[in-house]
Amino acid sequence: MLKERARKILDSIAPRGFDALMVFKPENIFYLTGFWGESIAICTHDENKLFVPKLESTRALNESKNSKTITSVERGATLIKSIIPYLSKFRFYSDCSDYETIRFILPYTDNSKFVLDEGPYHNSRIIKDEGEIQKIKYASRIIDKLYEICNEEIKEGVTEKQLQSKLLYEAMNLEATSTCYPYTLNPFIIAGGSNSALPHFETSNREFTDGDFIVVDLTLRYKGYISDATRTFALNKVSPEMSKVYELVRRSQHQGVEHVKEGTECGKVDEACRNVISNKGYGENFIHSTGHGVGLEVHEQPWIRQNESRKLSRDMIVTIEFT
């Protein structure tokens, strides 16, 4: 399966005159080799080579598949130097986005032989195979279990961070790990009361109180693959206005799910959700995109947002998650 993934990407770049991949992002290296760690991969139709520092060599040998492991003594520049001899042998598509790495490489090649474009990697990863689907399903079932725990644990006097700690502990007991999402400091978003109005609120020591809405946004990784979901809980009795808005958002989400069909433009899914909200006078409060793809990253293609023309295809996995 991993060899087939590399072949698919290589076939997609062949018409442009390129015959190799130079891979730096951990997600793409894992996708192509099965190894997640400090490394650089070179993939051709003949073989995959995985370049790793000595401290990663044993793990790379044990975890990588269909790859020849080449060990460098040191990390950093020494590791990058180990791939220099290959720059004259192939024409590469690379996912590298690190300025210093690119500056180091360019004197040994030129723009006709080394292209920086992650598009072919994303275009392959956007369609999941059966193994990927099963891992994401399992991660989703773990999240479902955590929401059952929320029903028991959300009480007056419990803090957002206390709930987060409980959920993270239970998640790890179920073999899930944190996604280490780079744009938040906390593993989850737990936001009660007025905090719940901020889509990416940083979990705090605020205590839950009677009448709160509590937003619980959970992202978890299982064997490399991520599931992402958001639920809103009400603590005891909420105001009539809050109840009305909750039901409106629930109907909007339902409309979105109904539009998730093969051949539908992603922007039309967003529009279906947005129209339900806007028609009731709350359009200016819809400040979040409707959803996104999930896989090896928390947010990846396809994007369920306004004016997105990409059409949904079989075996894409998306969230409808503006709630």
Rank of each mutant, 00 (worst) to 15 (best):
L2Y: 15
E4T: 08
I9G: 03
D11A: 10
P15M: 07
R16S: 13
G17P: 01
F18M: 05
A20E: 02
F24P: 03
K25H: 14
E27R: 04
G34Q: 04
W36H: 07
E38Q: 12
C43D: 09
T44F: 02
V52M: 09
K54S: 15
E56N: 13
T58M: 12
R59S: 12
S64D: 06
K65A: 12
N66F: 09
V73W: 09
R75G: 02
A77M: 12
T78F: 09
T78I: 10
L79T: 01
C96T: 14
C96P: 08
R103V: 12
L106I: 14
Y108T: 05
Y108G: 00
T109R: 10
D110P: 05
N111E: 11
S112R: 12
F114C: 05
G119I: 11
H122K: 09
I127V: 14
E130F: 13
I133E: 09
K135F: 05
Y138H: 15
S140Q: 12
R141G: 05
I142D: 00
D144P: 01
I149S: 05
C150T: 04
N151E: 13
V158K: 13
V158H: 04
S178A: 14
P182H: 02
Y183C: 05
Y183S: 00
N186E: 12
I190A: 00
G193H: 10
L198P: 00
H200D: 10
F201C: 04
F201E: 01
T203N: 10
T203F: 01
T203A: 06
S204Q: 00
F208P: 04
D210V: 06
G211N: 07
D212A: 07
I214C: 10
V215W: 04
L218E: 07
L220T: 02
R221Y: 00
Y222T: 00
K223P: 01
G224V: 00
T232D: 06
V238E: 00
V238A: 03
P240W: 00
P240M: 04
S243T: 13
K244I: 03
K244G: 01
H254C: 11
Q255V: 09
C266Q: 09
K268E: 14
V269Q: 01
V269Y: 03
D270N: 15
N275W: 01
I277F: 04
S278T: 14
K280P: 02
E284K: 15
E297N: 08
V298K: 07
Q301H: 13
R305H: 10
N307L: 10
E308K: 11
L312F: 08
R314K: 15
R314V: 12
D315N: 15
I317K: 00
